[in-house]
Design a protein around this nucleic acid. Structure first.
Length: 731
RNA sequence: GCGCUCUUAGCUCAGUUGGUUAGAGCGCACGCUUCACACGCGUGAGGUCAGGGGUUCGAAUCCCUUAGAGCGCACCA
């Protein structure tokens, strides 16, 4: 027996060494797997973590699930490709670096200029990516580093430009002046999905524009009223019917305004006074009302810095200060009729926390309702169909309903951003002329200043990573991919966009199965976050307990789509399990050594997994019962992994190894192995070796390090690594 | 407003298509330095499966309902 078994299991020392050996072997790359039988492809694209910092336990969970599936399929003889990468996370990354620079040097992005800022960001991203790559390795992820990708590298840029041009040519991308979600803090537009609503108490003011104005209006944003062009009431509202169609002039807080009364069915007659002051330039719904009644969109009173541009006393004030001014003015004029508290959802930017200011802007959009040429359907339909038709399965199933619900409410997607870090919009202008291209235009043309929403590029992830738009061997072999494992939080951001992009680019699905993980929370049920300081670095956990233990703690009992609280105690429990397995191996190896009292147990092909099935005479009847029991477990575990229940599979093997193999079988083996019945001893020795060998194989996807380390000392070893050893045969 | 989820042992959670005395980890109590392992072994306490109603030979599991918690989307004048 190897002397290493004389000491307790040491995950720190073992894990680094074993990972290096795996990586050196080249087996993470499907092209290097041993030849022999034909290997069907099996592909998972790693959700690229944001290159903004370090991985947290949520990432560790995703990596564990993916690695379990990949290792399982690799052992089953598939050509497994697990392609790793990182996401440039445009807004998140730029705002983080900007913040750093502001803090350390007191400079803004405009002080640095576009080129210098990008240089700084790239340096930061390079470091961040290196950290992430290290963390992914620490977790034991058996991904193919030779194919690693970045959402903002040259190959991905070509894919982005290509699809942009194709969508533009297909009339699905257009430039339009519409209300956008403007983030004054980040100085950029964001999409509807990047908004987070925060509930707050706000004041609802009821007032009149002027003494002789017939209709009182209620608003939470009095400062925008200098931009009003109309008052909208419900068509059936008897109170205001007589005023519909009439027009009034007033001077509101120094600003001359012209108000027309219109009837619109979107107005809720029961809210406030039942009359809405219409501010087309600063509210999406008002913009729509203005559209329906041919009202002007032109009156803009707030700028990109959330400051007032209206003339008079409000000019140059922040919107919040202007609000006070207007209220004071209303009071002074005796126009304020009522003030009350209301609960209100404030739109804030997910990344910067800035309060969204709706503004009209010229932006690039993806039209989700227009028919896609040659498909006879809109992008919306194309996103819906594969899920409804069962070509794509979402796990857990109930998220399919959430997905449908989201798509039904989907509006055009604003894809341009006024930040510098990202894929630059591949459009060039010369005067009135416009040119959309994959390659830069000739001299004399000016490229669009804006960049693209980060999800526009990550939407291409499953095929841009395989060489698209070229017709590569990888693309033909590995696409569509098999499974994707994101957190449920990015179902819309990412999963939906990948389906959209892949349907458009390839007329195909990006993946067959979506396994949504839940969120890992701290012991108090809070999300991990930097501001709370409750983050756990998977590297620290691995150093303390071993990555195997962390993986088990994350996986056991963790059902898809469900949040889970994580404590160090739980991880500690599985560190003990790794040591238990280690000691089981020591016992079995000690007692079955060649040349020992039961030399006839020297392993040959017959004792390898399931070999005993074909040679029943090598086991006595009672040992055969134990053998059969493990076969049943093999069947169970195999089905559980196949059907995406790793949380059950892990628990079953755990239970078997500790409470069946160790507690019962090893205990009852002691008198047999020390006894005088040679035949019984030989039979039991063969049994124990086989049970251990099979247990290691079943457990390997979950706890790859300790199982590999033991396997290297197993007399039943039949390949250079357990990683590529064959999965126990299911009868 | 539309939609989804959760409520099971002190804590965190499983329970796969309804089927024998409802499970795990941690924690707890008592006893063990037993020749694989104290990162351990043995024994044990602890649950009217949120409440009510129904379907069924049989329900933690399916249906209805009440209460509490959470989430998504929309609205938010």
């Amino acid at each position: 027996m190897d002397e290493k078994f004389l000491k307790p299991y040491n995950p720190q020392e073992t894990e680094t060494r074993v990972y290096e050996a795996w990586e050196t072997s080249g087996y993470f790359n499907p092209d290097n797997l041993p030849e022999g039988k034909e290997r069907p492809p099996f592909t998972i694209m790693m959700p690229p973590p944001n290159a903004t910092g370090i991985l947290h336990m949520g990432h560790a969970l995703g990596l564990s699930i993916q690695d379990i599936i990949i290792r399982f399929e690799r052992m089953r003889g598939k050509a497994t490709l697990w392609l790793p990468g990182t996401d440039h996370a445009a807004i998140a990354t730029q705002s983080k670096v900007e913040k750093q620079i502001k803090k350390e040097e007191g400079k803004s992005r405009h002080d640095l200029g576009r080129e210098e800022l990008l240089k700084r960001i790239e340096t930061f991203v390079a470091e961040s990516r290196a950290t992430i790559q290290k963390q992914v390795r620490v977790m034991g992820a058996s991904c193919d580093w030779s194919r690693e990708a970045f959402t903002l590298d040259a190959e991905r840029n070509r894919a982005v430009n290509t699809i942009f041009k194709r969508m533009y040519d297909a009339g699905l991308i257009y430039r339009g002046n519409r209300i956008v979600n403007w983030d004054p803090k980040g100085q950029t537009t964001i999409s509807d999905d990047e908004i987070v609503y925060e509930e707050r108490t706000a004041k609802l003011y009821t007032f009149r524009y002027a003494k002789d104005f017939p209709i009182p209006v209620a608003t939470t944003r009095p400062e925008t009223k200098v931009g009003d062009v109309a008052v909208a009431v419900h068509p059936d509202d008897a109170r205001y019917k007589e005023f519909v169609g009439k027009e009034y002039d007033a001077v509101f807080c120094d600003v001359p305004i012209h108000i027309k009364v219109v009837a619109d069915k979107e107005v809720d007659p029961t809210f406030g006074t039942g009359a809405v002051g219409v501010t087309p330039a600063h509210s999406q719904t008002d913009w729509d009302i203005a559209d329906r009644h041919a009202l002007s969109h032109e009156v803009i009173v707030i700028n990109e810095y959330a400051k007032m541009t209206a003339s008079g006393r409000l000019n140059g004030l922040k919107t919040t200060d202007a609000r006070e001014q207007v209220v004071a003015w209303l009071r002074g004029e005796g126009l304020l009729e009522k003030e009350e508290d209301v609960r209100q959802n404030i739109a804030t930017a997910e990344r910067t926390g800035g309060i969204i200011e709706p503004l009209p802007k010229l932006q690039w959009w993806v039209n989700v309702n227009k028919e896609v040429p040659g498909r006879g359907k809109s992008l919306k339909d194309l996103m819906l169909e594969p899920v409804k038709g069962g070509k794509i399965t979402i796990i857990p199933e109930h998220f399919e309903k959430t997905y449908y619900h989201w798509i039904e409410n989907l509006r055009d997607w604003c894809i341009s951003r006024q930040i510098w870090y990202g894929h630059r919009v591949p459009v060039w202008y010369k005067g009135e002329e416009i040119q959309v291209g994959v390659e830069p235009a000739e001299a004399g043309w000016e490229q669009d200043e804006d960049t693209l929403d980060t999800w526009f590029s990550s939407g291409l992830w499953t095929f841009s990573t395989l060489g698209w738009p070229d017709d590569t061997a990888d693309l033909r072999r590995f696409h569509p991919t098999d499974t994707i494992v994101p957190a449920y939080e990015i179902l819309f951001f990412w999963i939906a966009r990948m389906i959209l992009m892949t349907e458009f680019a390839l007329g195909d699905i990006p993946f067959k199965t979506v396994y949504l993980t839940g969120i890992i929370r701290d012991t108090q049920g809070r999300k991990f976050s930097k501001s709370l300081g409750n983050g756990i670095d998977p590297i620290d956990i691995a150093a303390k307990f071993g990555a195997d233990a962390a993986r088990m703690a994350l996986v056991v009992g963790n059902t898809p789509g469900t949040d889970m609280r994580m404590s160090e105690d739980k991880i500690k429990g599985y560190k003990h399990f790794a040591n238990k397995l280690w000691n089981i191996a020591r016992f079995i190896l000690e007692n079955t050594e060649a040349g020992g009292s039961e030399g006839s147990a020297i392993p040959d092909s017959k004792t390898r997994p399931n070999g005993l099935e074909r040679y029943p005479e090598l086991l006595n009847p009672s040992d055969r019962t134990h053998f059969k029991a493990l076969s049943a477990l093999t069947t169970d575990v195999t089905r559980d992994i196949e059907e995406y229940r790793p949380y059950l599979a892990a628990e079953k093997i755990y239970h078997y190894v500790w409470h069946e193999l160790a507690d019962k079988i090893l205990e009852e083996s002691k008198p047999i192995l020390n006894g005088t019945d040679d035949a019984a001893r030989a039979s039991r020795a063969r049994l124990l070796l086989t049970l251990l060998d099979t247990s290691l194989r079943l457990l390997h996807p979950f706890m790859p390090f300790v199982t590999e380390e033991i396997y290297q000392s197993m007399p039943t070893k039949d390949s250079d690594f357990l990683m590529i050893a064959h999965w126990p045969v299911v009868e």
